[in-house]
Design a protein around this nucleic acid. Structure first.
Lengths: 219, 219
DNA sequence: AAATGCAATATGCAACTTGCTAATTAATGA
DNA sequence: TCATTAATTAGCAAGTTGCATATTGCATTT
């Protein structure tokens, strides 16, 4: 009653690098599409994975040495044609990783700006597009963009992260006022960031806060 | 390298009935859990379904005679234990259907208020919970709740739908003002709803409008 | 025919938010 | 000490929002 089905997971790993939103693409080691840059992914292993998310974490840990980052399920893509090997179903995830936590093996992977991408295999173009949509949509009224920063950050860094993640300019003054009024941050010790100018106070996200009613951007 | 995997789709069909948000549960005709009320669902058929959504529409059409309603992918649930038959993966969907478009075969299915549910098989309890969360979260700044109304509706009906969908009271006066300012509705002919009182103007959603920046509820 | 009941719809307003622009503050280096 | 630059505050006009109070249009009742 049920034929063989190919079940996989794929990750859209986003980060901020050089003031731009970038995605991690791996060079595929095997067929199909051997040698092409593609979203990192792998098979779900029924014998060892507790579920799809578990499989995704295993793959990300193995392929990219990643752990302790923000991960949310994006959507599931399926059909007979998306993978030349046959009817397949892929659960895609959105991962947000601070740049300094990404250690890329340059012989196998690289960062690409999300608005200047090479042709991608399978339906990875669509998946990537959906991932950016999700970040932009949900990011405006949630702490998602802050997941692209290290645990501790300044308001200027947070402001910049939101601008990059949402792909729009946000008035710095209003941003500070709104963020502070939302009461989603806790203070930390201070530090000067750029080395020369006035030092900025540092903050961290309060636990459990993820979404709010007012928007931090958009219009 | 890949064992047999069970691939299914499940639907959380929500509607407004008697002023409450309700879900359609089907009585399972076969094992496992034969006879229990559960989310309607079925196998993905690789030989005839173009993808998971296609399978979902086929199932809903066959089991409930539904077509032309709002359907969005919710999330995918997987693991070795959720289905006693083995490692399974289920793509869940959220369907929003106007009450008058639902024709339930009472010998096979029934409506249950989402805040007073029977015990559910598999992980259907969690899926249902996630579906309601989605409606409440996304509904505050989107036209989702209006999908629970017929094509044409009055502002009072729309207001009531948002209150039920979001599970909170919303000031009627502000609601009207905001909705009209958002410019997401187009006028229709008028009609009196309750028969005796002042007749209300009717509206329909403009095509393509789905989300907006201001919130229609929440705080 | 006028008064009444009710929901639909509109008005008024004080309190709050928001986008801008213009200060002020804290380091650094000349 | 002063100029420079980023961090952080202030000030304000314009726009929004919640809430309370009218008004309006039918149907039914006096």
């Amino acid at each position: 009653m049920q034929l063989q089905i190919i079940a996989t997971v794929d990750a859209v790993i986003l980060t901020i690098d050089g003031g731009a939103l970038k995605v991690v693409l791996h060079e595929r080691p095997n067929d199909p599409f051997q040698g092409m840059a593609a979203l990192p992914g792998g098979y779900i292993r029924e014998d060892e994975d507790k579920n799809a998310e578990d499989a995704m974490r295993r793959v990300l840990s193995d392929k990219a040495g990643l752990s302790g980052f923000y991960l949310e399920q994006l959507a599931t893509y399926s059909g007979p044609d998306r993978d030349p090997r046959g009817w397949s179903i892929s659960v895609a995830y959105l991962a947000l990783v601070p740049a300094d936590q990404l250690k890329i093996d340059k012989s196998k992977a690289a960062l690409f700006p999300v608005d200047d991408l090479p042709a991608l295999p399978f339906d990875h173009g669509r998946i990537l597009h959906d991932a950016v949509q999700r970040l932009r949509g949900k990011g405006a009224y949630s702490t998602l963009p802050a997941s692209l920063l290290s645990k501790t950050f300044t308001l200027s860094e947070m402001h910049a992260a939101y601008e990059v993640a949402l792909g729009m300019q946000i008035d710095a003054s209003s941003f500070r006022r709104k963020v502070l009024a939302l009461n989603i941050l806790k203070d930390r010790a201070e530090m000067r960031q750029d080395g020369n100018k006035r030092p900025a106070k540092t903050y961290a996200l309060k636990e459990g806060v993820t979404t709010f009613n007012r928007t931090l951007g958009a219009t």
